[in-house]
Design a binder for these strands. Structure first.
Lengths: 353, 353
DNA sequence: CCCCTGCGTGCACGTTTGTGCAATCTGGTT
DNA sequence: AACCAGATTGCACAAACGTGCACGCAGGGG
């Protein structure tokens, strides 16, 4: 009964080490499979093992980032939607093809998978990566594939505690996954999502333990977040998970809030001045956030469209990963706002098939 | 019976065009398959087509370079063999894993496939790419996958005519494939591999039509070639295809030639001065070749080891793609030459398994 | 006008691949 | 020495995949 009860015993083949049998075989197998087009059967014979082992070696190779599969760099001839979004909103769009018929939860899952793979190439060594939490980020975190970069840090963007839980397990799961995928240190932000009193926040913000996190956030090179939308059909955790009470919600309505990023709220036009709740929120100051080099926003579901438009109006993102239906809607709404410019898409989407 | 009898009618969807149904669907399918992990069946339903069509769309996507699969960049922990070769010979080695038991012709095929995929990322826009000919290059050319880069030129490194044929169809097939893969202009070099008389070469080298090619070669940014080895079990085309007569071969022996690159010969120590045949050969001057930024050498088969060692001694390559057996042999021979340094590999190769 | 040729499609079949399960192995603890 | 937990293997079965073939459609030539 020593004080040692780590989830993992010292046996930690996480990554480093000169590569054991296993990962060396995985490399060989990957080369033979992906570069020489042998069948797994043939590889098994050469490696003197069973075919099923080869299958597993290959999935290991994919998992650990030994094999990287990328689709379509040539941005010139990118799909129309992505170009339109880029022109309209000045963000790099990655539209995830998802038929309109699939369920919301499946769409989220698929956007998440593709998002995980899309952000991977954007991660670099020595990065400080801010990560928010929420159902979207949670889904993304489950699908990250490993990439070995060095000396990076994952920092939590906003507190996760609420009146019912400290939020630790949920948010920290997300962070942990990011940390594991990129071999990075993880810095949690152990504060509630919202303080009850703005003064408490000010006080805490002067604590050194908190300043350390704020300082990291200040030096962020990448931020990854979803958006919340007030009127979302499936409301974000923030609006239903015990974070806000009746009064808070009324205040949000009063302030004409349409959504949030990392529990910082904004209006339809992107402004966030004088939104009371922000004074008690532990999220990053939005003006500050805007200065981060790479700001990646992941969105799935048309119901988040209003929050998304606000976030775009506020210029919070440099990269936007979203499902096709939302992308279409986004462009269409933009066209309605500024009629005259490129024709709306309604017709096009049918002609596509 | 018009003079028009091109192999392909004007119907040329080669690449350009805004992308038709087909390649757009291919992109969607590729995203769904490789980025979202859907099954082909599921994709077929979303695309309202049959599963088999999806299978074909995906292979199109791979073929046309829409999907790029790369294996293992992290050079730090590259396999031991590659590191040893890099240290010993100062070239970037790509060792192709091939069990010792496979036949020579299969090994060639596999090296060729992997070579084709390995050189693809090295090709850039505005490149001038010199390409030799021979059985190795022929095999490589069959497996190139498309990559769209612009304004590049493929230029033939050495003439291919001999006493029996003009060599056009054979060499030009290789060039054509390269040109097609990279959307590049192709410049053939319509001269024999060897002139009968050195003076003819000098004369021709002053012709403007020839100078144009020489000029291109001079501005090469990448060169791709195999090696010939005098004592190769399966002799290179050059030594058996009617390019050289008895007398020539005797002369080569006299000059202590061990092999050639693009029909330019060299000795074991890498020197090429005073090798008579080079005066009649149409290959690129080796001193000149050495100045090309990226020089990629593809070798399959232990029998070419002597030619390869000469080529390495001459510093002709910056990148070397070769099968595992040859790689091992290469390192072992080097260790024998300079005993004392890192232990030889004989023992290791067994412990590997 | 019809025919012919080339391309794209879906079907059906054989092949290739993923995975739950039970047996086995390995390294460390009692 | 015996034991145990976790990892790793091969097997067998089901799922997923590639491809030859026959059909149908479109465009150009006779």
């Amino acid at each position: 009964m020593q004080p040692r009860e780590l989830p993992r015993p010292p046996r930690t083949p996480i990554d480093g080490e000169g590569a054991g049998h296993r990962s060396r075989d995985a490399l060989r197998a990957a080369q033979m499979y992906y570069l020489q087009d042998l069948t797994m059967d043939a590889i098994a014979r050469e490696l003197r093992t069973s075919r099923s082992t080869v299958s597993r070696l290959l999935s290991l190779a994919r998992q650990t980032g030994l094999v990287q599969i990328s689709v379509s760099n040539p941005a010139e001839r990118a799909p129309v939607l992505e170009q339109q979004i880029r022109r309209r909103f000045g963000v790099e769009a990655h539209v995830v093809p998802v038929a309109d018929s699939v369920s919301d939860s499946e769409a989220l899952e698929r956007v998440a998978i593709q998002a995980a793979r899309t952000i991977s190439p954007l991660m670099d060594s020595n990065a400080i990566i801010g990560v928010a939490w929420g159902s979207t980020l949670s889904a993304v975190s489950h699908h990250l594939t490993r990439k070995d970069i060095h000396d990076s840090t994952i920092v939590q963007l906003n507190g996760a505690g609420n009146t019912q839980t400290t939020g630790i397990t949920y948010a920290s799961e997300i962070l942990r996954r990011f940390g594991q995928a990129y071999g990075a240190r993880v810095e949690q932000f152990p504060v509630p999502a919202f303080f009850d009193h703005a003064e408490t926040k000010r006080a805490m913000w002067n604590e050194r333990s908190v300043r350390r996190i704020l300082d990291l956030q200040h030096r962020m090179t990448v931020a990854v977040f979803g958006v919340g939308s007030i009127d979302a059909g499936i409301p974000s955790h923030v609006y239903s998970g015990g974070y806000l009470d009746e009064e808070d919600l009324a205040q949000l309505a009063e302030d004409e809030v349409v959504g949030d990023v990392a529990t910082m709220f904004f209006r339809e036009d992107g402004s966030h001045r004088d939104i009371l709740l922000n004074q008690r929120s532990t999220g990053p100051d939005l003006d500050r956030l805007r200065e981060v080099r790479r700001r990646i926003c992941v969105v799935s579901g048309e119901t988040k469209i209003n929050g998304l438009r606000g976030a775009l109006a506020a210029g919070l993102a440099t990269d936007l990963i979203l499902d096709e239906a939302s992308a279409r809607r986004l462009v269409q709404l933009a066209a309605d706002d500024h009629p005259g410019a490129p024709a709306r898409l309604a017709g096009t989407s049918r002609a596509d098939r």
